[in-house]
Write a protein that binds this DNA or RNA. Structure first.
Lengths: 185, 185
DNA sequence: AGTTTTGTTCAAAAAAAATTGAACAAAATG
DNA sequence: CATTTTGTTCAATTTTTTTTGAACAAAACT
């Protein structure tokens, strides 16, 4: 590791220059812009920036990319990319692609809106809906046993939340059906 | 816990007991649970906990509440409540109610799903969609002037994003129409 | 078998977001 | 008009989330 410095004093700035980043890792301006668009997009969904960057990069890259390449193109840490890729894979937003003659895993973006939406619904929305359903059922029991003067009001409110949840579930199905249609542009 | 000798030396815990919180500020267990449900709910929407608490409290309170009351019931700071209420008001999730003989503003939760959804779409989703639209238009121009070998690929991708956005907009309208229906339970 | 390459994990650091609280302004009260 | 009440604002603090990077494990090479 520690190489004997054969030339007396070196400038720390020069020592810490980026040695990674071969010129082929340079992103085109368009690519940068698309990635920025995705970074913004995923923020609405409550996902971290790195996830937006990784998906954006894969989406706007003609060929599948290996983890190292993503690291050096985005200049973010290996850990971030590893975690981000796992997350995106779990969501079905990214898929591994075999590249002959290369030992590394390569990934491409899944670019069908329907698949993306379904993955997000399954991975992020449904779990929440389900846990809410459980708690709501407990609440119904509590409200029935309640003796306070507000008991009636509470019951009405809890019924209303149940109604919301039901309609939320219906909406997800509608979304799904809508995105499933073959689009005639 | 440490059984306190009622004589001489006082325990700091006892000294720092909450002097606010008159007994009428106590929340019922059901109310606490409903609030917890909302806190969880708003997290999916990317909103801060305090907003969930405030909306939840108003939703499960039979009467409109003033800012002070919210502060002491939730035991969070006045600043948080003030900001949270403004946010909720802007979204149309909460509305001021006149209470005669009381100088303070009072608020109730708006409890119609349609109104809530519309407010969220207008306040949080549409602004993002619009800024994305602008950026996308710039991107289209860039892609047309691009000369790189990937130009065709880039154009296809950018068209696709435009397609997503279009369908996203349609979906919002569908959601709106669906929630607008009179619900036959 | 030893070495290199590839990818994961997780504690620590950094960054981002939410909350607090005190200072302030505006309006109402006496 | 001085005082109190009510509500807002924002810098500082706290909390939460994200990112980093080094240690590790597993597989692939020689």
């Amino acid at each position: 590791m520690s190489s004997s410095p054969q030339t007396s004093i070196q400038n720390p700035e020069q020592l810490s220059q980026k040695l990674t980043n071969s010129n082929s890792d340079q992103l085109e301006i368009i690519q940068r812009e698309v990635i920025a668009l995705f970074v913004n997009g995923v923020r609405v969904l409550g996902l971290p920036k790195s996830v937006g960057e990784i998906y954006g990069l894969l989406f706007i890259s003609p060929d599948p990319l290996a983890l190292d390449v993503i690291v050096s193109k985005l200049e973010i840490s290996k850990g971030s990319v590893s975690q981000g890729l796992r997350f995106l894979r779990n969501l079905g937003a990214v898929k591994p692609v075999y590249v002959s003659g290369d030992r590394r895993d390569h990934f491409t973006a899944v670019a069908e809106l329907k698949k993306l939406a379904n993955g997000f619904i399954r991975g992020e929305l449904n779990p929440n809906l389900e846990s809410a359903t459980l708690r709501l059922d407990e609440l119904k029991v509590m409200a029935n046993n309640d003796t306070s003067p507000n008991s009636d009001f509470f019951q009405e409110r809890i019924r209303r939340i149940g109604n919301w949840r039901r309609r939320g579930g219906m909406l997800l199905k509608i979304v799904n059906r809508f995105l499933g249609r073959t689009t005639r542009v």
